[in-house]
Structures are given as C-alpha cells and as structure tokens.
Design a protein around this nucleic acid. Structure first.
Lengths: 198, 198
DNA sequence: AGCCGAGGTTAACGGTGGTTCACACCGCCA
DNA sequence: TGGCGGTGTGAACCACCGTTAACCTCGGCT
C-alpha cells in the first residue's frame, strides 16, 4: 500500500516512473493503430524494454487499457465538476467554462481522446461499465447546464446536444496540426458555443 | 462478367444477395465490437452460415472491411457532390444541402458511420490510401463551400471547421434512440448550421 | 439422366500474440 | 558480505483465429 503511494508521489515529482512511461507510450500507440493492433512487444519497445517486462507493472494488457480509460474518464468528470463549481451561478458562464475545459483537454491530449471512445468496446464488461458510469457523470454535468439554458428542451434533447458538442470538439485529432493551437482553440470554442446555444 | 452484373441486378431488385447480407451483418457487428474483435465465425453466424463460407464471397476478412469502407466513402463523396450541384449557386444553400445530406446519412447508417472512422486504421496501406483519397474529396467539397462563406478564413481553418461539423453530426451513434428521428434531425441541422457559420 | 458450378460444411493448419517460467542483474539493508 | 525484492530477458506455452483443404449437396442446363 505505502509502496504504491510512494510510486505515485515519485510519478508526480521525479521523472515519470516506468509505469507512467508505459501508459503514455501505450496511449500513443493505441491512438495510432488501435489497442487490438498493437502488441505488448510494441509497447515495450516504445519504452526500451521487451514485451514481457510489461507484466512487472501491469497484470495484463487489458488492465493497461482499463487504467488508461478510467483515468481519462475521471479527469474529465472531476475537471468538469470543478470548472462548473468555479464558474459561478450563471449557466452561460458555466457552459463557457465547460467548453473551454473540453477544448483544452482535447488539444492537450489528442491521443487520449481517440483511445477514449474508440477502444472502450474492447474492454471487459465489468471495467467498461465503470468507465461508462464516469462518462455518464460527465455528460450529466453538461446536461444540467444545458437544461438551464434551454428550459423548454426535454432531457433527451439536452443529452443529444451534449454529445454533439463533444463530437465537435473531439474532432481535433482529425484535423490537428494544420492550424496553430491558439487559433484552433478560439475556433473550436466559438463553434461549440454556437452549437450549444443554437 | 454477365453473371456478376446479373448478381448486382438481383441485389437491387430481388432480396439482398448473400454477399450483401454478409456486408450488412458485418457492418453491424464491426460497429458494435470493432472489426478486429469480431471473427469470421461471428459474421457467418449472423447470416446463418459457418465462418469459412464467407470465403465463397470475399477474398479475405480485410477485403470485406475494405469494400465496406470504400462504399461508404464513395457514397459520401458522390452524394456530397450531387447535393451541392443541385443546390444552386448560393453557398448558404449549398451548405444547408450538405448538412442535410450528412445528417440524413448519419441517422440512416449509424453503424457505417462508426466503422468508417474507427476501423480505417486496421486496413492495409494500399486500400487505406484509396479510402483516404475519397474522404479527402468529400472534405474538399465542404471546404470549398465553407471558404465562400468565410472569405477571410484560411484554408486550414475551413478544413478544421468541416471536421468539427462532421464530428458534431456523427455523434449520432452515441446518443441515438433517445430522441425521435425528426426531432434529432432538426436539432442536428440547427446545431451544425450554427457551428458552421459561427 | 448426368455433369457441373455455386455455395456450404467440418477438420486441420499455421501464424500471431498474450502470458508464464526460469533465470540474471542490481541496489539496498541487516 | 550476503540475502532479497524489484526489474528485465529469452524461451516456451497455448489459445485463438484467419485461412485452406477435402468433401458434400443441389439446382440448372444439355
């Protein structure tokens, strides 16, 4: 127990632990080729070790993917909650905060965004359910805000609206690099706002 | 030669040929679980035959996926071209036509939409390139229209805009069923228009 | 009637890739 | 100094799955 906590501390302060290196490299590879298409040997090679060495840090390849997806979902759910809480009582401000948060996250972590919604299917049902619960929590944050901005809309419409805005913002990996980051950020925020309030 | 043409005719007029049944069932399964996670036995079972029977109709599992993706890309590229041509000279009308087309396609073929951008990575480079070329053609149709509506924007911005609108509309599979089809269609068109013109 | 091609079936093959095993190295602590 | 836990390696194991092979059936055409 203490040893894992120590490892976590080292991960933050020191240079990333081998475990973190693996997760990051795996995320990159999974995003490029899909989790099923990359082997443990590939992941190992990406951090300079052989394939089986992975099993000193993770119980299985699936456990790696599970932890990756769980972290993403947690970061989103918690980040969304925080940003809304910090944005005051006005729903318009809350929406603006959510959009900025999601855009920043998508631009900062294109690989995670890709893996997040492509490789959820290749996860054991137990862990997939956990991820879906977190995703749902995040969606509900958006739905709550959107519902206050569109009082006449039914909940289903707000949910569809939220997913549509996610799709819009998460399109980043498909068109990244062409436009410089600040311009991209501004454009996505503007479009997302227009879509969310249309 | 004539036999294949006859088969194609039958496919349109008569009930779908076994080949078409396979493609459709495969699309459904690929969308649900990802192409690498479904076996040829699964596809066979879905149409009431055993796995190896597939090879009477397709050279390989990859060939199945390739044909699926090529068809989608072709339908989109051609459909986009046609709709724009039929919409007259006004770029606003052309954009409206493109949006309506994409929304209809996404709502009619959620499975194809999912497979289209998730399983492109698990395709041989030669065929993947062919698909990407078609995708590019479709994107360029959008970019051309968007560029006329936003004369001050550079091409990269218009491309990002197009991808963002795709992401918005293609979010359908993630939130389908909750809202009835006409309402969904109206909502997506409204949001897409707002995003594209923001 | 009798071939023949289309389309199916079961069994088997072979490669790929996740996982395990036995062993080696190394820094740390008693 | 001598064990010991943590980390890495190469070899082997094993299951899964795409693919092929050999054989069957049946409808149509001569």
């Amino acid at each position: 127990m203490t040893s894992t906590r120590d490892a976590a501390l080292h991960a933050d302060v020191d240079r990333p632990s081998r475990r973190e290196q693996i997760l990051q490299a795996a995320a990159q590879l999974f995003a490029e080729r899909g989790s099923r298409a990359v082997g443990v040997d590939d992941v190992g090679a990406a951090v300079g070790v052989t394939g089986p060495a992975i099993y000193r840090h993770f119980a299985s390849k699936d456990a790696m993917l599970a932890e990756m997806l769980l972290r993403i979902s947690e970061r989103l759910a918690e980040g969304g909650r925080e940003r809304v809480a910090a944005a005051g009582a006005e729903p318009a401000d809350q929406l603006r905060a959510l959009i900025e948060f999601q855009v920043e996250f998508a631009l900062d972590n294109p690989a995670l965004i890709v893996v997040h919604d492509r490789d959820l299917t290749s996860l054991a049902e137990s862990e997939a359910g956990q991820v879906r619960r977190l995703q749902r929590r995040y969606v509900e944050v958006w739905v709550t805000v959107l519902a206050r901005l569109h009082p006449t809309d039914e909940a289903a419409a707000c949910r569809a609206r939220a997913h549509a805005v996610f799709g819009l913002i998460n399109s980043t990996p498909h068109s990244a690099g062409r436009l410089d980051r600040p311009a991209m950020q501004e454009l996505l925020c503007r479009m997302a706002w227009a879509a969310a309030t249309a």
